[in-house]
Design a protein around this nucleic acid. Structure first.
Lengths: 354, 354
DNA sequence: CTGGTAATTGTTATCGATTCCAATAAAATA
DNA sequence: TATTTTATTGGAATCGATAACAATTACCAG
């Protein structure tokens, strides 16, 4: 019968257990377990014999059983705000590479810029038994942070500076980066600058702060230059077409757009073009992140470079360190320095006199 | 003492176990377990009582324990060839979304276009106890396929047509898509077309076949129009700059490049520009995939659209179906139809007469 | 030769669930 | 009232590892 054939085929390969190895080697499970974890306190003789049998039988210990017993899974959770944004893909790569070298695995969730989903993802991952969490977060509720903190659950924030006690993060200096970008625009003569970004996102909030402060420093008025609430729906996702249309058609014209990230910037440029305007001739656009394609798009994007891969790699490494060395409770906060990358999406429209 | 404080803080939240719930409800673990799995054969009375306690104590069954017992983890493995290629990110999103709705989790590996790493990833994931595998594969060794097949391990290939018995896949019709692209170039008058892609990759091999056959159909000679082996290192990764340089500088000039995917195409255009040539004026370039930015790059890319999100979503759904219904051994193969998307990266250079 | 220490190995409980089978209680039938 | 059924519930084994502690053996000095 087919089903029997299939069955036998499958059971051919039922994987060996530690007990079987023990029996074959004529020792107890404990001894095999010892060999598995380095082989200290086991005589060279038996160790070699067990090792040989393990290899022969292609024995691999059951991670589920190990996890149950040790309460460690060697798995971490990574919550990405948007896997399709190349910024996050790059961060993810840094994380995955670091995990690979440390023999950890990564369970990935995509919160899709949705605060509720993000919270669900975090709980799912914790329930799944990940050892720790890496969060490229949208707008983490304080409730969620407290939830994590309360149960001493190891986690590190990526691209999200949150100076609550006990919270670790790896970020670039968003405030400084935003200052860099804004200064640059001002220097080119821009005074009417629109900040395109969702204020709910924590990283963007920092950038917004840098933006505003810089305007104030230069005594430039900045009312009416943020995304109106009506374009931000409850999931924090907004319709770029509508926003650009709104900016273009209102009376008070702007001369430059500071986009919260390159992905947004590139999309905006497309929409601006679709509306018959040119970048940078009619409107200058500056981005943030310096994702790979920024240099390849129609109008090569002037932007702020932040070390994405490093962000992910460092964050993962920090987390692993916490996990391997749980006593070490010192705060781990890393702030990387961003840089201005000048390309062609911003135009001088006057001379700035300070 | 600090350490005691911390300790107590942590243990405050040690998660409840099924036994504790059972004790609180004055029933056996078995009964609680029954409630967990639907509550059949349990009186409404006790069921409600248990449910209430579960909610109160925020009890969540330990997935590790469940997995150990049932040998199912509700986790699948996804091996991406390159997470930074937007094509794969989009596919991944489809997978993750499908998993989310079916309450599965996804462990992600990035094989980085490396055959050896891919094989290692697969084994790691199997060892990790994933229920099944989704492979957006580079160039799967037959040995690996057989390994999976032999132990009846559920897996589905994405973007990789492999008609070995027992292998399931979800792909777009690469052969047809490549024909579409090639026909289009020929129609525009191109005869010297260079196929830019690593022949080791299975999906590219199909595209290459479509490319060659179309040339033959039109009686166009096609020697010397593939990437020479010397540019393909053992990891299958090649240096685009060198290749483009090679094409441009050799005697036999080509008029068009058929890039194996958009990511490659976009990078190529940049390199072509860097070398002082223009697209499409000097060289036409056609891509494959239609990734989002294809329409936003300097020269909007003419390409072949394939339904990336759907590819991932369908593959995941197929896999879940196999997992939920293991008896159902029918082959699941889905071939989606690609389309030509004409933008501005290809120029007419003559009239084609058939 | 013997007590003591070090080296090696085994016993057994445990992690937190599921599941087969048995047991009890309640309801239905004779 | 006695006997089946049926509906609920519990007992105990099990999944595959780890770890505390106990036990055995070997080795060495006195």
């Amino acid at each position: 019968m087919v089903s029997m054939l299939e069955k036998s085929k499958k059971s051919n390969f039922k994987k060996a257990t530690i007990s079987e190895i023990a029996k074959l080697a004529g020792v107890s499970r404990t001894t095999v377990s010892r060999v598995l974890s380095g082989g200290y306190f086991v005589s060279k003789n038996t160790k070699d014999r067990i090792l040989k049998i393990i290899k022969e039988k292609e024995y691999k210990p059951s991670i589920m059983a190990q996890s149950l017993r040790t309460n460690r899974t060697r798995t971490i959770g990574l919550v990405l705000a948007d896997i399709e944004n190349p910024f996050y893909s790059r961060v993810a790569k840094g994380v995955i590479d670091a995990a690979e070298t440390k023999k950890y695995n990564v369970i990935l969730c995509n919160s899709n810029n949705d605060i509720e989903l993000e919270e669900r993802d975090i709980k799912t991952l914790m329930g799944r038994g990940v050892d720790g969490l890496l969060l490229t977060t949208v707008a983490l509720k304080m409730k969620t942070i407290e939830y994590l903190l309360d149960r001493g659950f190891p986690f590190i924030l990526i691209d999200c500076k949150l100076d609550t006690p006990g919270v670790n993060y790896v970020v670039n200096d968003d405030y400084f980066g935003a200052k860099l970008a804004t200064e640059y625009l001002i220097e080119l003569g821009h005074k009417k600058i629109f900040f395109l970004g969702d204020r709910k996102l924590l990283s963007l909030r920092e950038r917004l702060r840098g933006f505003k402060d810089t305007l104030v420093d230069h005594k430039i008025e900045s009312s009416n230059t943020f995304v109106p609430q009506k374009f931000i729906n409850m999931y924090g996702i907004y319709d770029i077409d509508k926003i650009i249309e709104y900016i273009i058609n209102r009376e008070e014209k702007i001369t430059a757009v500071f986009a919260g990230n390159d992905y947004l910037a590139i999309k905006s440029i497309k929409v601006i073009n679709d509306n018959g305007l040119k970048v940078p001739e009619d409107i200058s656009v500056i981005g943030y992140d310096n994702i790979e394609i920024s240099s390849m798009v129609k109008v090569p994007l002037t932007t702020i470079r932040q070390p994405k891969y490093l962000l992910g790699k460092l964050a993962a490494e920090q987390l692993f360190e916490i996990l391997e060395n749980r006593s070490n409770k010192e705060i781990k906060r890393i702030i990387l320095r961003p840089e201005l990358v000048i390309r062609q999406s911003c135009k001088r429209i006057g001379n700035y006199k300070s």
